[in-house]
Amino acid sequence: MRTGVAEKVGEPNDVLRLESRSVPTPEAGQTLIRVTATPAHASDLHVLRGRYGFSPGTY
């Protein structure tokens, strides 16, 4: 699967990168759902920039 990854706070163009990762195997009591696309909401971009009430890694 492909996923957007950011390891630090900053402008999305500078810190966000696309990675390929293996599809996780669900454990007992879990379900795997195939998602073909998902939007990046404006609040997601504020979190990446460190401007949304909390910083990534502090929750």
Rank of each mutant, 00 (worst) to 15 (best):
V5P: 01
V5Y: 11
V5M: 12
A6M: 10
A6H: 06
A6I: 07
E7V: 12
E7M: 11
E7S: 13
K8M: 13
K8N: 10
K8H: 12
V9K: 01
V9C: 05
G10N: 01
G10M: 04
G10R: 02
G10V: 04
G10P: 06
E11T: 05
E11W: 04
E11N: 10
E11D: 14
E11Q: 10
E11H: 14
P12Y: 04
P12L: 00
P12C: 08
P12R: 00
P12N: 11
N13F: 12
N13A: 14
D14R: 06
D14Y: 04
D14I: 01
V15N: 02
V15I: 06
L16Y: 02
L16T: 08
L16N: 03
L16H: 05
R17G: 03
R17Q: 07
R17K: 11
L18H: 03
L18G: 02
E19W: 07
E19M: 09
E19K: 12
R21Y: 02
R21P: 00
S22C: 05
S22R: 08
V23Y: 02
V23G: 02
V23I: 12
V23Q: 08
V23R: 10
V23H: 00
P24Y: 00
T25Y: 06
T25N: 09
T25E: 15
T25I: 12
P26N: 02
P26W: 03
E27T: 08
E27W: 06
E27C: 03
E27G: 14
A28V: 05
G29R: 02
G29C: 05
G29Q: 00
Q30F: 01
Q30K: 01
T31V: 15
T31D: 13
L32V: 03
L32N: 03
L32A: 03
I33V: 15
I33C: 03
I33M: 13
R34C: 01
R34S: 13
V35R: 10
V35G: 01
T36S: 09
T36R: 10
T36H: 12
T36N: 11
A37T: 06
P39R: 00
P39S: 03
P39Y: 02
A40H: 01
A40C: 08
A40F: 09
A40Q: 09
A40W: 07
H41C: 08
A42E: 14
A42F: 11
S43V: 13
S43H: 15
D44G: 05
D44L: 02
L45P: 06
L45H: 07
L45I: 08
L45F: 11
H46Q: 15
H46G: 07
H46I: 05
H46A: 15
H46S: 15
H46W: 12
H46Y: 15
L48N: 08
L48S: 10
L48T: 03
L48W: 10
R49K: 13
R49M: 09
G50L: 00
G50S: 06
R51G: 03
R51H: 09
Y52N: 09
Y52V: 00
Y52K: 04
G53H: 04
G53M: 01
G53Q: 00
G53W: 05
F54A: 14
S55A: 14
S55W: 09
S55Q: 14
S55M: 13
S55H: 13
S55G: 05
P56R: 11
P56Q: 11
P56G: 10
G57F: 10
G57A: 09
T58E: 15
T58I: 04
T58H: 09
T58F: 07
Y59M: 14
Y59S: 13
Y59A: 13
Y59I: 12
